[in-house]
Computed example of a mutant assay.
Amino acid sequence: MTCAQAHERLAELAPLSGDEALPQDLARHLQSCERCREHLYASRQMWDELAHWPEQEMPAELVRTVATRARAEAKTADSPLAIALVFGLVAALASAFVISSRVSLDHVPPLGLVGVGAVWTVLYSGLFFLFRLAREHQRAVFFLTRAVLVAGGMFLLLSYLSPVPASITFCSRYYVTQPLLDRISIAATYFLFGGVYAGLPMAIAAYLTPGPLRENTAMQGTLAGGMFALLLTPGIIMQCAPFAFGVLIGWFTGALLGSVLGGMLGFWLRARIA
């Protein structure tokens, strides 16, 4: 643990008292770092002085002014739900555009496209709503949802550069990978590629995620990976329409497993290296 990380943890644990037990990793760092011990001592002194600070009643005029301004701002503030719905709609349209620009969707009926788009809008909106709602009070949820949204953007970029069906077609003709793909079923092939296409963005996004995500990396990776796999489902369904149902199951299963493993790996590396 670095001094900067120790100061961040101390800020998260505030207010600090002399009797409060500290996390083990933070306590170990404090034992070997005099500078951080002085910082802890100064923080405890500050909170002790604030605890004995005499309470003062706010002037009535100031209370009325603050209340009036708060009500006015509440009326003019944008609804978080409305913002989330707008974001979800824009993100769903952008995702559908990226996929349709690289993969033919002629096999998908118009009603099916509308249904998939609606599901995608709901998923994006829900994630963004959690992202905004947890920004102030649930920092762990905030960083998890941010990692999922970032991974979603990376997945779209990867799908635009080389969609899964196109990559499978290329590898089935390339002399190095052709013998391997010839030995497995098409469903198993989509399982492998689905895992890679989901696991790589999720691992990178999890590793790049800052914040208080240093413990329980397995649980965090599972939660983020599950949400990410759910976010990918509409895109997988759109591209799997001309294939057998087994291909859809194989692709989704691979994406789910890759997302979870990628999230666990990314958060674990972040906790150990960053």
Rank of each mutant, 00 (worst) to 15 (best):
R183G: 06
L40R: 00
I273R: 09
A96D: 05
R146L: 13
C171P: 03
L256Q: 00
V176S: 01
Y41P: 11
A77L: 05
F193K: 05
G18V: 11
G235S: 08
A244M: 05
A6P: 12
Y207P: 01
A70S: 10
I186E: 15
A67R: 02
V114I: 13
R214P: 00
L265H: 00
V164G: 01
Y175H: 15
A14P: 03
P179E: 04
L192D: 00
L40S: 01
L269Y: 07
L231V: 12
L192F: 02
A166D: 09
M238V: 06
T145A: 14
G112F: 04
E49W: 12
L261V: 03
S32K: 12
A91F: 02
R132M: 07
H52P: 06
T76E: 08
C171H: 08
V247T: 13
A255L: 08
V116M: 04
A14I: 03
G195T: 01
G258R: 01
S17N: 14
A229C: 04
R64Q: 11
F243R: 11
F128L: 12
L127I: 04
L157N: 04
Q31I: 12
S162T: 15
T65S: 02
L81G: 08
H137G: 07
D182P: 07
Y41M: 15
H7V: 14
R28A: 14
S79F: 05
R28S: 06
P23R: 07
S100N: 09
Q24V: 06
I237Q: 02
Q178M: 08
L30D: 12
Y190W: 10
A203H: 00
Q56F: 05
